[in-house]
Amino acid sequence: MSVRAPVSGLDTLHPHAPVQVEGGEARIGGSAWKLAAYVFLENRLAVAGLVVVVVMFLFCFAGPLVWRVDLVHTDIANLTQPPGSGHPLGTDIVGKDVLGQLMVGGQTSLEIGITAAILATTFGVLWGAIAGFAGGWLDGLMMRIVDSLLAIPTLFLLLVLAAMFVTSVPMLIVIVALVAWLVPARLIRGETLSLRTREYVDAVRVMGGSGARIVLRHIIPNTIGTIMVNATFQVADAILLVAALSYLGLGVPPPATNWGDMLSDGVAYTYAGYWWLIYPAGIAIVVTVVAFNLIGDAMRDAFEVRLQKR
């Protein structure tokens, strides 16, 4: 038996706000964070997504400690071998173990995805909050920059950037973050336009609080729901973007790899029917991206006040 969330109208930004209990329902006490966690955990798909992400992290980062194979040297005498003893998922185009490659490739994909998401979200949030709070010509200027960059097709921008610089893990993080910060900037700017008129912002002003203090201590914390949800989606998007870039030959140089690189190499053997070069990496990308999206969906429910009562 599950217990439904009994509250509505809870201001997630004020953990100590009174919780209103609807008639006949049990009250779940505690903070808004607990409530959000409760709503999140109520979503079975989200829990499944969370489990998948945790398993994927363990697979990628702890797996190599258990499955020890040489992923530095090629073994061209055994390239593109089908699954069999010693290589449960076969060997790749230069004879490396596909299972091992899947683990280290996943490390790269997750590292890039998460780091790029953090970078993009951080920068986008600051940009949007400053623009929204400042208003006037500065807001206009900052948001026209965002609009201009948004008008350029993402993949085109990525390809140009990737072609300009020698690709590496740090460089891919920066490249992906450079195109990913625009969405959170717009979202946070929109929320800031609303938040800056709140009474508690006026109160800070009256008490002599600076603009920076208002933005950093009051406005941004009050957009945490939007930030968290967007950041989650950003991870999924970043993994997909890196996979797309790698598929187009702009991935990380060997012996490093990522799932997109693996997929790109494997697709060349489509006609040969070497499924083990395509399915493992493809499935890993799909499963991970879907998992992050499920988590993001559930977080939106958890942080969105109107959706908390269901």
Binding site: V72, H73, T74, I76, L79, I93, V94, P254, P255, D265
Partner: peptide, 10 residues
Amino acid sequence: KQEMEALKSD
């Protein structure tokens, strides 16, 4: 690409 990766390894 395969040749260059093998060469790097060697």
